[in-house]
């Protein structure tokens, strides 16, 4: 007997989906913004000629890139409070972890972009008497920005999906809401299909945009 779809029951909880989607957006955008700031700081840290600074930046990158986000989330929510003796609210732990995680990947994307710019650009900029700071901000970064845009968008798409993991510490974003609705309706097929569709509808245009930017760059080079 074929499965009888029943979306109506599930869609009665549309406000939960809407609220979950809103939170997913909020956590994603928030952690991208903070992650970009962290990423820039760590990127310059790694490029620093001071060994201590570049070493610490490197250590940060590796810790967050080489452990699962899920484990990081649980560590910040359950373990860190024991260490510092202060409880951490789940939304704080979620935002903090997502941002640190994003920052570790963004920093490496930014660094790759900066290092990919031809050395001749730096030399030409220095030859017209620019200071190191001017060389970086006027010549290197504008070119690197364009070059890292596709990777940046791709990483941000991953970030959007990764936000679903904060459901394990009971933050009510989209994936969490799917589980809630399923609990209320016993309609997992409909509930999770709707959520999957919502993710897809948001992210498909993003990956298309990344492809488009990448294509444009190949043409213009």
């Amino acid at each position: 007997m074929p499965y009888k779809w029943d979306f109506n029951t599930v869609l009665q909880y549309w406000d939960l989906f809407a609220w979950g989607l809103w939170l997913t957006f909020a956590y994603t955008l928030g952690s991208i913004v903070v992650g970009v700031v962290i990423g820039m700081v760590i990127c310059f840290g790694r490029l620093s000629r001071f060994r201590l600074i570049s070493g610490l930046s490197r250590a940060y990158q590796e810790v967050f890139r080489c452990t699962p986000l899920l484990v990081q989330l649980m560590w910040f929510y359950y373990a860190l409070p024991l260490l510092i003796g202060v409880t951490i609210e789940n939304y704080v732990a979620a935002m903090l972890t997502l941002s640190l995680y994003a920052g570790s990947f963004y920093s490496e994307i930014f660094r790759g972009g900066i290092l990919s710019i031809d050395k001749g650009q730096t030399e030409a900029a220095k030859a017209i008497a620019m200071s190191d700071r001017q060389v970086m901000w006027r010549i290197i970064i504008p070119q690197a920005f364009k070059r890292v845009l596709p990777s940046f968008i791709n990483q941000s798409v991953i970030q959007f999906k990764n936000t679903s993991l904060i459901s394990v510490i009971s933050v009510g974003e989209l994936a969490y809401m799917a589980a809630v609705v399923n609990g209320q309706t016993y309609r997992p097929l409909e509930a999770f299909t709707i959520v999957a569709l919502l993710y897809f509808i948001v992210l498909f245009p993003m990956t298309q945009a990344a492809d488009y930017v990448e294509h444009r760059m190949r043409v213009s080079d």
Partner: peptide, 10 residues
């Protein structure tokens, strides 16, 4: 002035 120009492409 350089062999490979090194103009700013942006």
């Amino acid at each position: 002035v350089f062999q490979h120009f090194n103009l700013f492409p942006h």
